[in-house]
Structure formats: structure tokens, C-alpha cells
Write a protein that binds this DNA or RNA. Sequence first.
RNA 1: GGGGUUGUGGGGUAACUUGGUUUAGCCUUCGAGGUUUGGGACCUUGCGAUCCCGGUUCAAAUCCGGGCAGCCCCA
Length: 485
Amino acid sequence: MVNDSEKVSNELPQMLGARKSELSEWYHNILLLADIVDIRYNIKGMNVWKAYGYQMMQNLKHFWDDMFKNDGIQELYFPQIIPISYCEQNPEWWAGFKEEGFKVIAGENNEIQGALRPTGEAAIYPMYALWIRTYRDLPFRAYETVSSFRYETAHTRPLIRDREITVWHEIHTVHATKEDSLNEALLHVEFYKKMWNHVALKPLIVEKPEWEVFPGAVGGIEFYYISPDGKAMENGSVNILGQAYAKKFNIKYKDKNGQDETAWQVCTGNGARLLSAVLIQHGDDKGLIVPPNIATYQAVIIPIIFEKEKEKTLESALQLKHELQKAGIRVHLDDRDETPGKKYYEWELKGVPVRIEIGPRDITNHQLVLVQRNVGKKIIVKRENIVGEVNGMLHAVQSELLAKSESDVHKLLEYADTVDEVGRVIDSAKTAKIHWCRNGKCYDTLKKIREGAEIFGSDYYEKKPGKCVVCGKDTENLAYYAKTY
RNA sequence: GGGGUUGUGGGGUAACUUGGUUUAGCCUUCGAGGUUUGGGACCUUGCGAUCCCGGUUCAAAUCCGGGCAGCCCCA
């Protein structure tokens, strides 16, 4: 095998028009150029999924479909419109969404028929109340994958904050006891860990501050992505609902003695936002790097065509494609009549993890050239070993991306033990790790340190004796403070 | 929610300040034909734009108002 690292051009990426360090512009440009979503649909906060991007999203969806269903969680589908009668009967709930809610108007007098679901509970829980009758019906575990609609007033960002939140899954489970519901929540934390691992991302797993848990609920565990600019992005949450919703929606069951009991609930949700974190985390100055697990194409074959041997080369390339497909590798043969260089740049921009070059020289020597996208490593392999070599390279990309994500998170966290230090950490585009006594006053003090920054949670696992960064009180609680998306 | 700012072919831009010889220029992309093809090929040729509605004016991409959309900052 030959090792021949590619030179990285110092020029500004021609197609992309922005470096990774100019994150906002980079992200904006790449969505369109790499065919993820087209943001030019003329409704604020609504985008068109393009085939290349949508396939990635679907690959991710298939992962969660399998994971949930293999654990016995059934998939359901509820209507997108919540009846207006429900909104009227629950004025408190509706008040929370009145401004953020899309209303559905129809009929001769343009009456409000309902609202596009801003969240699933109002569609789902009234039905749960009908379905759940006895302890034998519990646990009841179901999920759906749909869109949610919120008329965001703050500025929208494609896939991160949209008015139509697409490919959004939410699990809603119902249990007989508090203990059962807590166990369920722990299971969902494990689900999400697996999902993040699948896309080679290292999450920060935190407990919500108690006042962000809505009244009556027991608690919440959230997954956060820390982006290269040090900002924190909420990206999946597990809500331990307690009995708050069950009481409101009248979700009861008869126990073994025939007594009515109120149920306990858990819900979780996340969607396309996870893909946005994947794109942002793994991309570089050349474009995207898509983790092989969800890549639309895991490998792309570029035939090196010379006029004399054109047919022979294309035929070999096609054979290669069939062989790789047969081995279960998602592969694309780019047989367009363009120069190879142009194709290299395009597929690098689109983030295909492995490139395979096949030309007359390779055919003669019974070899192929493989290039690994994330590091630019180029190797020559024997033709007969191609399936193993490609799979090996795919595994390498997947694990290298994960390792990089882990080290990046590590680099972006900085412990601070004074308020001044906290400010300095934020100014250096990082997330501050601090001791915090969980007191609201100290929380508010910190909120004033830097505009747009706040404590977004406490480490779910790590505890360590120390003193609150604000008041100096003893605490074992380690919290995170950052600007948030 | 408040403030600022921008809108010109698919993408990036020039002309806008001072309204008029601009047939709205350039780069890129895209189509056709040809020569090519181991890191963004070349030649010939072609298609494609002033966000929408209204106002001022002899005349509007250019000035004014509103709408919609984008971006930035603040809540």
C-alpha cells in the first residue's frame, strides 16, 4: 500500500465560498450546494428537502425506527391538526401557543377549524385517555415521526430553528408507577446515546434547571451539541412528565383492585436538528463529511476515462459498482462526461466518505485507488480485496469522526471558578463548566455576565465537590454556561 | 416583540450616491456542438435577472410608501 497525502489548497474553496471558521456562512452555503435542503422556499422557516439530504435524514430515521420498534415501541400516526375545541377547552395550554400557533382556517365563513400541531400532546393524549383502561394496558409505549409547526418570531435557521420542524420523532409512554416511568426515562437516555454514537457525535448530557421543567413534571434530561463556536444547541430531550399531563388529559387506569389510578408519563423528541449538528460538526473547509452510517452514498466511483479505453473503463467501473452494492455498500458511479478533478471537488463538498478511482492503469495492475475524505489519505489496494478495503475505510471514517467529536467537545469546555473567568471563557468562544449551587439568584447573576449566555443544565453524570462560582456555597453540582442556539 | 440592514439570471456581483447611450455589464453555473479527461480542461455557440403592489416623474434597477423574503443586533 502506498501512502500519499493530498495537498490541501490554501485558496478559499471556490464552490463553497466560505471557510468552516466562518460557520454561519459556511452552513448557509453548504445546505444549498450539497443538496441538503433548498432554503429558497418563500415561507420563513420552511425548507425543501433535496434528495441527497433527505436520504441522509431517512437513513437516520430508519435507525431510530429500528431501535424503537426492536424495543417494542409501536409507531402511530396522529393528524397534524389539533381541534379548535381542544384549544378552547384548554385556554392555559392554548395561551402558550396562541402566538406561536398556526391556525387552520376553512369553510364558508373562514372559521378557525384548529391549529397545526405545535407539539404532540394535544393530539396524542386525548386518544391515550380513550385507549388506556386497565393496568393490563400498561406500559403503553408509542411514537410517531411527523412535522411540528411553530410560528417562530426569533430568526429562523434551516434545520436548527424552523417554523416547520420536519422529520421529528416523539415518543410518548404511559406507566402504572413512578418507578416504571423513571426506568423508562433511563432507557430513552440510552436510546439517544446510541443515536448520537451512530452519527459519530459526542453529546453533553445534562439535567434541566428545575424551573425549566414545567409545573408538575419530575425532571428533564437533555442532550446538547457544542458547536465549534462554543455555542450550545439543545438537541433531543427526555422529559419525565410525572402525572401532570395524565391529570390534565384524564389518563387513568384501573388497578388490580378495580381502583382508578392516574398514570405516569415520559416523552422524548428530536428531529432534523440532529442532522444539522452532524453537518456542522464533521464538515471542513472543503465541505461536508458525512458519517458512513447515514451517508446517502458511502462511496463514489470516479472512472478515469481516456478516449481509447472509454468503454473498457466504464464497464469495469460498472462491475465494481455491482460488486459493492451486492456487499451492501451504498455506492454511486459518477459516469458523467466531466474531468475527474471536477468530480473530486464536488463529491468532497458533498461529503462522501470514500472515493474510488478506477482508470486504465488500475485495470492493468488489478488495483484501485481509494481516498478517505476526512483525512485525504490516498491508498492503492488490490482489486480483489475491494469490499474489505472499502468497509475498512468506512469503519475508519466513522470512528475517526467520533473520536474527533469527543476531543472537540473536550477542547470547547473550560472550567471556570470565578465570575470573571466565566466571562472570559465565553469571550473565547467556549462553553464554561462551573460549580453552581442550583439557586435561581446565582443563575440570574450569571445570565447578566454575557448577553445571550445562560446555564443550560447540570452534568447528568459528573459530580465533584466545589464552591458555587457566584455565591461560594459548597456544591457538587457541575453546570454548563454558554451562548445557546 | 424592538431596532438596523439588504433584495439585480440557478449562484456570486456591477450599475443605485447624482433617475436618462445600458441593448442592465462581469464571473460562475446551465444547454448544444467539437476536442478532451490520473485534482476544478479548452474552443465555438446559446438560454437566463432588476422581489411584489402602489406612488413621484416626460423617464425608475436607481427616489418614496406598503407588503413579502433574507441577514445582523437586542429582548
